[in-house]
Amino acid sequence: MSSVSTRWSIIDSATAVHRVECQSLAQDADDGPADAALNGLDDQVVGYGLEARRAYDELKRTIGQVAGLLILAQAGGRRDAFDLPALRRAEAVQEEALDRVRRLAAPARLAAHRQRMLRAAELAGRALRALGDVAIVAGEIDLTQASNDLTRAYAVLQSTSESVFGMTMVDFRHACCTCGAMKR
């Protein structure tokens, strides 16, 4: 992925949220992975970061989605939660992320980062597979294995966060409570 195409994707998504005059747009245009924050990084690192970000986003969404389904099953009594087509989509996204991480060409100094991403992807996959083995214990749905794997997946993924590449758990640029509040 070239830096130019990344810049445009950021601007495109930003304009969908912010008004034309919003200062966030000005910052977005200069503050994505194509900005000065990346100056001084070699191309291999930048290339790794941009591709890793895609996997990070996919895993972040997968983990959030599966956690939501588990909440619906546990607190909402929605035993049908796991039959939703969304679960199939979660599996597809997790597999895509896992493949992407496996294909990542990490510079030597980022090998440990890639390894953590791989671990997060595998744990998310384990959580999804555990949903297929959910048991009913004493009349209650037992989500222990899936919950534990998912929680660990989140913790490992969080440890790979890197704001220079936009790898953050919350995209604050799109948050209502920060819109236009860019520090000058």
Binding site: A16, V17, K60, L69, L70, A86, A90, Y154, H174, A175
Partner: peptide, 28 residues
């Protein structure tokens, strides 16, 4: 939100300001 997280990137605006970590903690 769970549904929104399953959507493709072009629709991710609907995930605005939600941290999957909060959903994890909600699960706990």
């Amino acid at each position: 939100w769970t549904w929104a997280m399953s959507l493709p990137d072009r629709l991710r605006w609907m995930m605005t300001a939600v941290d999957p970590g909060d959903i994890i903690r909600g699960l706990d």
